[in-house]
């Protein structure tokens, strides 16, 4: 009897720990939607998602939101001649790049907020200087207004031009899941936060919800 009780307690203990899978929160506004499925009224949650976009990467290839289908990605906003925070950001982003280099379900997107100067050739030169190869890390440029508008959907500060710093922007790395929802925001200039980002990417890749889509 006593043995049985012991086993029961052990079972209870394991029930608490082993079945729980760590998941990341989902950020942004959400609203309930009601739709009729098979004649029944079903309520679902509509999450904030990243809208459609179309840019060009450092190889001159067209990159759209569809290029990210079935992929988890990290996005940031920068410009190659940035005198302030960008070197720190990309020193840290290189850590993320090296950790997941070659993974087919992962990308990094760095949007240039100075597309007039940051041509495809300039972005390629920048990628070469960072020793970034292949398709893991895309440096994107395109319509300036489209980039600035897109930044709003990532919930970061909209970039603006400044006489001294050329452009004002923030250094957040935004983690996006396969459903294009925001799952995390990390200060790209802070090493500890980027280490957290790498851990969170691993959690997200192991999330069963991410495996199916």
């Amino acid at each position: 009897m006593r043995q049985l009780l012991g086993i029961l307690i052990l079972c209870l203990l394991f029930a608490c720990t082993s079945n729980k899978i760590k998941t990341l929160p989902i950020y942004g506004d959400r609203e309930p939607i009601t739709k009729i499925t098979d004649g029944k009224e079903v309520t679902d949650t509509l999450y904030h998602t990243i809208p459609a976009f179309a840019f060009v990467n450092q190889y001159g290839d067209s990159i759209t939101n569809d290029s990210l289908n079935g992929k988890i990605y990290v996005a940031d906003f920068f410009f190659t001649t940035c005198p302030s925070i960008c070197p720190s950001m990309h020193r840290n982003m290189l850590k993320v790049y090296k950790e997941f280099e070659g993974a087919t379900d992962f990308r990094i997107l760095s949007h240039s907020i100075d597309p007039k100067y940051d041509s495809v050739q300039v972005l390629k030169k920048y990628a070469d200087a960072l020793d970034v190869k292949g398709n893991t890390w895309w440096l994107l440029q395109g319509d300036k207004e489209a980039t600035y508008t897109l930044s709003k959907s990532y919930l970061v500060t909209t970039p603006r031009e400044d006489e001294k710093e050329k452009f004002i922007h923030d250094g957040y790395f935004i983690l996006i899941d396969k459903q294009k929802r925001i799952r995390g925001a990390y200060d790209g200039t802070v090493e500890e936060q980027v280490i957290k980002l790498i851990e969170d990417i691993k959690i997200l890749r192991n999330d069963p919800e991410q495996a199916t889509k």
Binding site: S84, P87, S88, H90, R91, L94, Y126, A129, L130, D131
Partner: peptide, 15 residues
């Protein structure tokens, strides 16, 4: 530090 790094290591072939 932003460009030259905490330990003066620079940044790849950029800095």
């Amino acid at each position: 530090q932003n460009c030259h790094g905490k330990n003066g290591e620079g940044l790849s072939a950029l800095m």
